[in-house]
Amino acid sequence: MATVFIPAPLRRVTAGQARVEVPAATVAELVDRLDAQHPGMRSYLLDEGGAQRAYVNIFVNATEIRSLAGLQTPLAERDEVSILPAMAGGGAHHGPPDP
């Protein structure tokens, strides 16, 4: 059973819960189960093609899953998963064009 830390902007989806327990063997399975419990999670975390959205970081314990096995990263009992939307922006007036 992994524990998922839900950040403030996603708590509207989890009815205010900051921590959710989810049985899952991989991050991909965790996303599916989270979405079944709290509809809207999947589309927040993944794009239409099922890939992790660029602005969403998903940590297993202290490591972002892009440097592990991505959505296929295995989960063990007592792993802690943290979902963190990026904090980014900037003046960008003379910088590269906005994406």
Partner: peptide, 9 residues
């Protein structure tokens, strides 16, 4: 960057 920021995840 002088034009963008991204808090280190």
């Amino acid at each position: 960057s002088p034009f963008t920021y991204r808090l280190d995840p």
